[in-house]
């Protein structure tokens, strides 16, 4: 969903740049609470993993593909504030070094994928988690549903920005329908990749899954000791 330069006018790009800068500033403060000596390397690895996974376009129909956005995956593994930073770094590197996603559109892409993608994915994840049993086993399905919703949400975000500052006159209804349609399909892929990744990490090291932290804390401390000693 990398928006190239030229889709949105200069004012809108500037405005999303300000929003993106604000989001990163807030994330830098919030991430301090999420990161310590043990989870800091995890943040680097999650960002690198999202970069790699974003290269893997999967077909969703003839002539159309999608790829992971990764906001929910990162939020569940390293926390929402750190996830905003991780996805922003991925987008920055992609734009400046890989010519993927515009440079004036960087603020737009950070707003859509690092802000909307992470916030919507994380909130839906927490909502589903509150409904499901308080176990580690609930983390993966909750992450999958958050991931699924986050993609059409980011697509709607693009439609909203386009209404404000699109460079070509397009019928709003048709644009909304096609953006939502394709990105609902892509959301299924997002859910599958997120579930596989969060599921794998939860299986071996649930203590390194930010979204499982309060579940583990509610359990006996013996369990955490057990994990440490097994290793």
């Amino acid at each position: 969903m990398h928006v190239p330069d030229g889709f949105l006018d200069a004012q809108t790009s500037l405005a999303t740049g300000v929003v993106a800068a604000g989001a990163v500033a807030v994330a830098l403060r919030g991430a301090r609470r999420e990161l310590d000596d043990r989870t800091a390397p995890m943040a680097g690895l999650v960002a690198a993993f999202v970069f790699a996974a974003q290269m893997l376009n999967f077909p969703v129909a003839v002539g159309t593909s999608g790829h992971l956005l990764g906001g929910t995956l990162a939020a569940v593994l390293v926390g929402p504030y750190t996830a905003v930073l991780c996805i922003s770094v991925v987008l920055l590197v992609q734009s400046l070094m890989f010519a993927d996603g515009g440079v004036t559109a960087l603020g737009t892409n950070v707003t859509l994928m690092a802000l909307v993608g992470v916030v919507v994915g994380w909130l839906v994840f927490r909502l589903v988690q509150a409904v499901l049993p308080r176990t580690v086993a609930s983390v993966t399905p909750a992450a999958a549903i958050g991931a699924f919703v986050s993609v059409p949400a980011a697509a709607l975000g693009f439609v909203g920005l386009y209404l404000v500052g699109g460079t070509v006159d397009l019928p709003t209804g048709a644009l909304t329908v096609s953006m939502l349609g394709w990105h609902t399909l892509i959301g299924i892929g997002e859910a599958v990749i997120t579930a596989l990744t969060v599921g794998a990490v939860s299986a071996v090291r649930p203590d390194l899954v930010h979204g499982a932290r309060h579940v583990l804390e509610a359990r006996e401390l013996v369990v955490r000791d057990g994990i440490e000693e097994q290793a």
Binding site: L35, T39, A47, V50
Partner: peptide, 15 residues
Amino acid sequence: IVLVVAGGLAFVVRR
């Protein structure tokens, strides 16, 4: 590159 940049940032920000 992403590992170094994001990991480095996380290390600076961490408690």
